[in-house]
Design a protein around this nucleic acid. Structure first.
Length: 723
DNA sequence: CGAAAGGCTCTTTTT
DNA sequence: GAGCCTTTCG
């Protein structure tokens, strides 16, 4: 197969320009992913470059995986030898390999935001600073930003311009010590320390420079300073660096991503070839025109000429509904229409929103009407308490120095070890000049003469230590799944959840985590645990998005970057939501909101809906928001409107007329049930009817499904069978 | 020590 | 509305 076949001239140029630096500015839908993949294939197949010498950085693990799959089809040579992944994943690998030069223990654990906050709180406590005056999350932000600029605590302190920054500097200093004491690294450390490693150790730097002769960076507009620094360190010598990005899709400035990297690239690599990919293969002319009109509202940008040979397609539908419930209902009914009356499948549709909180109303509607959906991140799976608890057990088993995890689990489930005991333990550890974990060991071994604890607490601490030691021993022998089961069992966590009615759902989350652990079951004992822990910390929620099940996708606009769907619904097109309230007083942020909207619209291939609610519940309050300013930028001839509800007085009317015109026409007769009936549902399986009531010409049943929980279903929609 | 209740704050987006 | 913290009581 000819690798260059089917590429347009610009794409071809982008694939073939393998010598020297290249900047590819790729509009949405311009075949960017294809170009990157073909480029790697071209390097390997046509130019005889060993995959060993290629590093490809992607934005998510999912993108990396997909690229591997595509490459496997294009080239037969060991794709495994490619270095591919997110910056964080690649850096973690480098630091485990060579971090010892910086005094980094190769068995470090990775701390996420949550762990960072715990650690910062601990620092504040030690430094006698009030967490109310010095918000831990604000400090975390500052530290994170500093690290993204490769500023260490000493430098930060000399630069401090305000009292708060001085506080941050002091916390930062202690924080880094504690990170080290815990044999941990946080997300930002992964990047910063790698840069420091390569900067200060010429031998190691040369080694990496000589290995990676070709560098490829996707989503370059969303890289930050450390990341760019890293690219320059590794690729600065041979200069075969290819970066791909679209300034109009830069939406991560809050994560310190810096658009200036794109400008910087042209300055740092003046010989760079700049290639524009402007032909769009994804969307209809209408969608592209809408997107262009929206993005042209930004002042700080270079104009671009996007064009497409695709057909004009349908107009966009702009909808006003009364509130977010009705908004969700509209989405459901419209999806249903698309699926029934046209050639769309559920999986062709995606609903996008600005904030995660917006998913709730949508989810409720999808459940109510029994329409299958997949939620990319509600409360994110790996951030759930129970999931983090079990991970903390495993982390502590792997790394006895991980004090953050120890604190998390020592009294969960309750073992009578409270705040006082912990601070006693802490001072005891200090007086012994060791950490808490070691102190526990000494206590269990009876090596401590003056015990500050009463016998009941001493017993409790000792049995905790024994349990951990046992698990730690086992972790070297048994498979990860076995270890997992022992952890949930021996820790009492299983009983803790399963004895509690409310714990059932949480227990199921743990079982879900177990299936993730299973994937690492093949690996020999200690490696399986390590690989699992690393995988689990560096995942993104989109990573788990699978395309195989036919269901509507609910996703944030940020997560939607890089994806495409035939039909896209953007909800919450209101001032304060999109654009978000927080951007009102900052023009730069407002431009980012606009880009976010642009990203959303350009995900659509055929049909786009822009929906807003007249009223919306936000943070407890009920607000009336103006339509989003972005809607005003769309030419009238490109849109049709629907469902306009002018004012509150007309609501009652509107809602009743809505019900009449809605598509939820009973397809069959409404079945009758009574409480206690056993029923079956295509998606939720078997269950029992809890309650049943008729509503107008429909009926609503509340059903408790086995192993799933209680769901409210509208019977004209959800097919429920009596069994 | 832990459970329950009440009060407080902060609410964007995520590797 | 949720999560976090503090207070209070058993």
């Amino acid at each position: 197969m000819n690798i260059l076949a089917g590429l347009n001239p610009a794409q071809k140029e982008a694939v073939e320009a393998i010598k020297g630096p290249v900047l590819i500015l790729a509009g949405p839908g311009s075949g960017k992913t294809r170009v990157i993949t073909q480029r790697v294939a071209y390097l390997v197949k046509e130019c005889g470059v060993s995959p060993r010498h290629i590093m490809a950085v992607t934005f998510t693990n999912k993108a990396a995986r997909e690229m591997t799959e595509r490459l496997n089809k294009l080239v037969s040579t060991a794709v495994k030898q490619l270095t591919m992944g997110t910056f964080h994943a690649i850096c973690a690998r480098i630091l485990r390999q060579d971090g010892e030069a910086l005094g980094i223990d190769p068995h470090f654990v990775i701390y996420d935001d949550d762990d960072q906050i715990s650690l910062i709180k601990k620092c504040l406590q030690e430094l006698n600073l009030d967490p109310k005056q010095n918000s831990p999350s604000a400090i975390q932000n500052k530290i994170s930003f500093a690290k993204s600029q490769v500023i260490d605590p000493q430098e930060y302190l000399t630069r401090a311009r305000s009292y708060f920054e001085e506080v941050v500097g002091r916390v930062y200093e202690r924080y880094q010590q504690m990170i080290k004491e815990n044999t941990a690294l946080d997300f930002d450390d992964l990047l910063m320390q790698t840069v420091q490693l390569l900067k200060n150790h010429p031998k190691i730097r040369t080694q990496y420079q000589e290995r990676y002769l070709h560098l490829l960076v996707d989503e370059f507009q969303d890289t930050n300073m450390v990341q760019y620094e890293l690219i320059k360190l590794i690729g600065g010598k041979h200069r075969n660096i290819c970066v791909v990005g679209d300034p109009d899709q830069s939406i991560y400035s809050w994560r310190s991503a810096d658009l200036r990297n794109i400008l910087g690239f042209e300055k740092d690599f003046p010989e760079a070839k700049v290639i524009l990919l402007e032909q769009n293969y994804r969307s209809t002319k209408t969608i592209l025109a809408i997107a262009t009109n929206i993005i042209e509202g930004n002042k700080e940008r270079k104009p671009k000429d996007l064009w497409t040979e695709n057909e004009a397609g349908e107009k966009a539908t702009i909808v006003e509904t009364y509130n977010e419930q009705e908004e969700a209902q509209f989405v459901v009914s419209e999806v249903d229409k698309l699926v029934r009356a046209r050639h769309f499948q559920l999986g062709d549709c995606a609903v996008m929103y600005r904030t995660n909180a917006q998913s709730r109303a949508l989810e409720e509607a999808f459940i109510r009407y029994g329409l299958p959906y997949k939620l990319v991140a509600g409360t994110r799976f790996y951030e759930r308490k129970e999931v983090k608890d079990i991970i903390a057990y495993l982390r502590y088993i792997q790394n006895p120095n991980d004090g953050v995890s120890l604190h998390r689990i020592i009294n969960v489930p309750g073992r009578g070890i409270g705040q006082r005991t912990l601070s006693e333990l802490n001072s005891l550890a200090k007086s012994l000049n060791t950490n808490e974990s070691e102190t526990l060991q000494m206590m269990a071994a009876g090596k401590i003469e003056k015990m500050p604890f009463n016998s009941r607490i001493a017993q409790s601490l000792a049995s905790f230590t024994t349990m951990i030691n046992e698990l730690r021993e086992k972790s070297k022998e048994v498979s990860l799944t076995e270890l997992f089961d022992m952890v949930t069992e021996n820790s009492g966590y299983k009983d803790f959840l399963t004895n509690d009615k409310e714990g059932e759902e949480r227990w199921e989350n743990i079982l879900e985590l177990r299936t993730v652990a299973k994937e690492y079951g093949e690996l020999p004992p200690p490696t399986g645990l390590a690989a699992f822990l690393e995988g689990v910390t560096l995942v993104a929620d989109v990573d788990s998005l699978d395309g195989s099940t036919d269901a509507v996708t609910l996703i944030t606009l940020h997560q939607a970057k890089g994806l495409e769907y035939p039909a896209v619904f953007i909800v919450g097109m209101e001032e304060g939501v999109l654009p978000h309230l927080r951007s009102f007083d900052d023009p730069a942020q407002m431009e980012e909101e606009r880009r976010l909207c642009y990203v959303g619209v350009t995900r659509a291939k055929q049909k786009v809906y822009l929906i807003r609610a007249f009223r919306r519940n936000l943070m407890g309050g009920n607000l009336v928001n103006e339509p989003s300013r972005f809607l005003k930028d769309i030419p009238k001839e490109l849109i049709v409107t629907a469902g306009t509800i002018a004012n509150e007085e007309s609501i009652a009317n509107a809602i009743s007329s809505w019900n009449k015109t809605a598509v939820f026409e009973p397809t069959t007769e409404i079945p009758e049930f009574k409480a206690g009936d056993r029923v079956k549902h295509a998606r939720f399986g078997e269950g029992m009817v809890v309650s049943y009531q008729t509503i107008k010409n429909d009926a609503e049943a509340v059903v408790a499904f086995n192993g799933i929980g209680v769901k409210k279903l509208l019977l004209s929609f959800a097919k429920l069978e009596k069994i």
